[in-house]
């Protein structure tokens, strides 16, 4: 049985055989998973099988962790988009009100279960939270522009996330299928060796 170092070397050669480094990538640089159509083309014996399985496992780990990260990104975007939309709509409404010289009467949250009344007279500036405990005043038109930009960017990011997730799902399935096929090939090989005549010695 080969040592750990030898397996690592074999795994490197397996990666080269599969031409992992010159596969296509998706727009965000995620490499496409290579498909092992005929196991014998890439694996010749027990040690190479183990090396291949290990390499496949590490590819699977990478894809799965990319999937987890992308899911997180998607969840956080899904949280932010409604707020940006609502903020944009509100600012546009205030702009209209100002144009008509109308005041707005509204309620606002004083505390979790308490609301108070306020009046908003026609204004030409609003304040937007930037994050990091900072709020910035914006002329209304600039605010509309900024929020529209942000909304478009967030929606595009969501689209990219969904594309990436689909791509990753495909890659993960491919690797899983590869793993099953190499594993089964190895099982077949062992059965074949067992049925050899006894006087033959197998290394």
């Amino acid at each position: 049985m080969a040592s750990n170092d030898e397996i690592v070397q074999l795994a490197k050669r397996a990666a080269e055989k599969l031409r992992i480094n010159d596969t296509e990538t998706n727009p965000r640089g995620i490499p496409k998973a290579p498909f092992i159509d005929q196991v014998e083309k890439f694996v010749a014996n027990a040690d190479e099988a183990e090396a291949m399985l290990r390499m496949l496992q590490s590819m699977l780990d990478k894809y799965q962790s990319m999937e987890a990260v992308t899911l997180q990104k998607k969840a956080s975007l899904n949280q932010r988009v409604p707020d940006i939309k609502e903020t944009l709509q509100t600012v546009e409404f205030l702009k209209e009100q100002a144009a008509k010289s109308k005041s707005t009467v509204t309620t606002y949250e004083l505390d979790e279960t308490m609301h108070a009344h306020a009046q908003i007279d026609p204004t030409d500036a609003v304040c937007l939270w930037l994050g990091a405990n900072v709020m910035l005043e914006y002329p209304i038109d600039e605010a509309v522009e900024l929020l529209t930009e942000r909304l478009d960017a967030a929606n595009k990011n969501l689209k990219d996330c969904d594309e990436d997730l689909e791509f990753l799902r495909e890659a993960i399935t491919t690797i899983q299928v590869n793993t099953a096929r190499v594993y089964n090939w190895d099982i077949q090989r062992r059965k074949a060796e067992k049925s050899r005549p006894e006087h033959e010695v197998v290394t």
């Binding site: 500036a125 930037l130 994050g131 405990n133 900072v134 709020m135 910035l136 005043e137």
Partner: peptide
């Protein structure tokens, strides 16, 4: 987050009203 805020603040006239929590 801080990097984004810094970028936004630098793109705006320095006498603009800003608030800190």
């Amino acid at each position: 987050d801080h990097a984004v805020v810094i970028k936004t603040l630098t793109a705006v006239p320095p006498d603009r009203k800003a608030y800190r929590l």
